[in-house]
Simulated assay, not measured.
Amino acid sequence: MKRLVILCITIMGFITVKAQDKGYQLGDLAADFKLKNVNEKMVSLTDYKDAKGYIVVFTCNTCPVSRAYEDRVEGLHKMFAAKGYPVVAINTNDPIVSPGDSFDQMQERAKSKKFTFAYLEDPNHVYTKKYGANKTPHVFVLQKTAKGNEVAYIGAIDNDQEMENPVRDNYVQNAVNQLLKGEKPTVGFTKAIGCSIKWKKAAGK
Rank of each mutant, 00 (worst) to 15 (best):
M1H: 15
L4T: 02
I11Y: 10
I11R: 09
G13M: 01
G13E: 05
I15E: 03
T16D: 11
V17Q: 05
V17T: 10
A19M: 03
K22L: 05
G23T: 04
Q25K: 09
L35T: 04
L35W: 02
N37P: 07
E40N: 05
K41F: 08
S44P: 11
L45R: 12
Y48I: 00
Y48F: 15
D50F: 13
A51T: 07
K52D: 03
K52M: 04
K52Q: 06
G53L: 09
T59G: 13
C60E: 01
P64H: 10
P64F: 00
Y69W: 03
R72N: 07
V73M: 03
E74K: 14
L76P: 13
L76K: 11
F80A: 05
F80M: 12
A82Y: 09
A82P: 05
G84E: 05
G84W: 13
P86T: 07
V87P: 15
T92N: 12
P95T: 00
I96T: 14
P99A: 03
P99F: 03
S102Y: 08
S102D: 10
F103P: 08
D104S: 14
E108D: 00
S112N: 12
K113E: 05
T116D: 14
Y119D: 04
L120P: 11
E121Y: 12
E121V: 09
E121P: 06
D122Q: 10
N124M: 11
H125N: 01
V126M: 08
Y131I: 00
A133L: 13
A133Y: 13
N134E: 08
P137S: 02
V139M: 08
V141L: 01
L142P: 01
T145D: 07
G148T: 03
G148A: 13
V151H: 01
A152F: 02
I154H: 07
G155R: 15
G155Y: 07
I157H: 08
D158Y: 08
D160K: 02
M163A: 09
M163G: 03
E164Q: 14
P166S: 12
P166Q: 02
V167I: 01
D169E: 15
N170L: 10
N170V: 08
N170Q: 01
V176S: 00
L179G: 03
E183S: 06
K184W: 10
P185Y: 08
T186S: 02
V187W: 13
T190S: 06
T190C: 13
I193D: 15
G194N: 08
G194H: 14
S196R: 06
I197W: 12
K201Y: 01
G204E: 08
K205E: 05
K205I: 00
